[in-house]
Structure formats: C-alpha cells, structure tokens
Simulated scan of single mutants.
Amino acid sequence: MNWHTVCPLEKIQPDTGVCALIAGTQVALFRPRADEKVYALSNIDPFAQASVLSRGLIAEHQQALWVASPLKKQRFRLSDGYCLEDESRSIPAWPARVRDGMVEVAI
C-alpha cells in the first residue's frame, strides 16, 4: 500500500468534500466534522458515470456517514463505499489519514 500526500487538512473545510487526482484516479475526499477524520472514495458516480461525488451532501443515516450523489441522490457510505440503494453499484474506498497536518490516501 502506497500512501500519497494530497494536501494540508486545512484545505478541506469541515462538512465538505474535495476532489484530488491520485495516481491517475479521481478520489473524493470528505471531512464530515471539524476533527482530523477524513474519508476517501471514488469520485465517479456509477449511476451517472460523472465525476461529481466530491460535491455530494454528507449526511448521517443508520448511525453511519454517507454522501448523497448530487445528481441522482444515491447514498454511498463513507467508510467503505457501499451503496444503500443498490449494493451492486458500490464504489471503491481507500484508507485515508492525517499525518503531521497533511491528508494522505493509500491507493
């Protein structure tokens, strides 16, 4: 597993997501709260085949954090990319961490 440094944590505002190109892959990074916990999912909405998930709405449902696609509103669990509406359309998720104030993703 190779860890890639993406950006300073402060570049991702709490309650938002951003997109990063990591090792040729579009990755949506989410920071749901004001702490150092970040999540990394594919930025590609598998229903619309569009690079939009980083702009989705972060929500809590069934005691888990999710992102709702801004296009078709399907929800993907931040911890593992599981799709609530259609598990056959779940998306890749990667380990993410904050180390010395920098966001890192393992792809």
Rank of each mutant, 00 (worst) to 15 (best):
A28S: 04
V67R: 10
F47L: 14
Q49Y: 14
D45G: 07
H61C: 04
M102P: 00
V18R: 00
G24Y: 01
V52T: 15
G56C: 11
E36S: 13
A93F: 05
G81F: 08
S90K: 11
R77E: 08
L84H: 10
L29N: 06
D86V: 09
I22C: 06
W3F: 13
D86P: 07
D15F: 15
V18Y: 00
M1A: 13
G24D: 02
Q13V: 10
P32M: 05
P32F: 06
I12L: 15
V38L: 03
A50W: 00
K73G: 03
M102W: 06
V6R: 03
L29R: 04
S79M: 08
W66Y: 15
H4I: 12
K72H: 14
L78A: 09
S88R: 13
H61M: 06
Q26L: 13
Q62V: 04
L29A: 02
D100S: 13
L53R: 11
I91M: 04
R33G: 06
G56S: 12
Y82C: 11
E60I: 11
P92G: 09
D35H: 11
D86W: 09
D45E: 09
P95E: 09
H4C: 06
L21I: 14
C19L: 06
R89K: 15
Q63A: 15
H4W: 10
L21C: 12
A50G: 07
A50D: 05
R55Y: 09
M102K: 08
I58G: 07
G101F: 07
A68K: 15
Q26K: 14
R89I: 01
G24I: 03
D100K: 13
I107V: 15
I91A: 02
I22S: 03
P46Y: 07
W66D: 12
F76S: 04
Q26W: 09
I22L: 09
Q63V: 08
V38C: 02
D45H: 08
D35Y: 10
L71R: 07
L41C: 06
A93K: 06
A23K: 08
C19Q: 13
V98M: 07
R77V: 09
P14C: 10
W3K: 13
V38R: 07
Y39M: 02
A59C: 13
R99Q: 13
R89V: 02
A28F: 01
Y39T: 03
Q74V: 07
L21K: 14
V103H: 05
C83W: 04
G101D: 02
L57M: 13
D15P: 01
P32A: 05
S69W: 04
Q49I: 07
W3I: 11
F47R: 05
